[in-house]
């Protein structure tokens, strides 16, 4: 299944890219994060992040569909 991933801030730097289209067998954002953690060696663990799917905050257990856009959200620091 093909998914679009966008990276921001610390995760963008650690992934070395701001977005990518990925062929994956991950069925949920949680599975997808485990896969990408192994690939890029992110220093943040999943319990430190939130996740958005198609620009809405999402549960980690949500079932992903072809073409979904996933963004992992590190601890925020606006203002």
């Amino acid at each position: 299944m093909q998914l679009k991933i966008q990276y921001y801030a610390l995760m963008r730097e650690q992934a070395g890219r701001s977005e990518e289209t990925l062929e994956t067998s991950a069925g949920t954002p949680a599975d997808l994060y485990d896969e990408l953690l192994a690939r890029y060696g992110f220093t943040l663990s999943r319990d430190q992040l939130r996740v958005a799917v198609n620009s809405e905050f999402s549960e980690w257990s949500r079932k992903l569909k072809v073409g979904d856009a996933v963004v992992f959200i590190p601890p925020v620091a606006g203002g």
Partner: peptide
């Protein structure tokens, strides 16, 4: 301002 700092996906380096 409190809620924006807490909730908005904004990052500062």
């Amino acid at each position: 301002i409190d809620e924006v700092k807490l909730r908005a996906p904004i990052w500062k380096k």
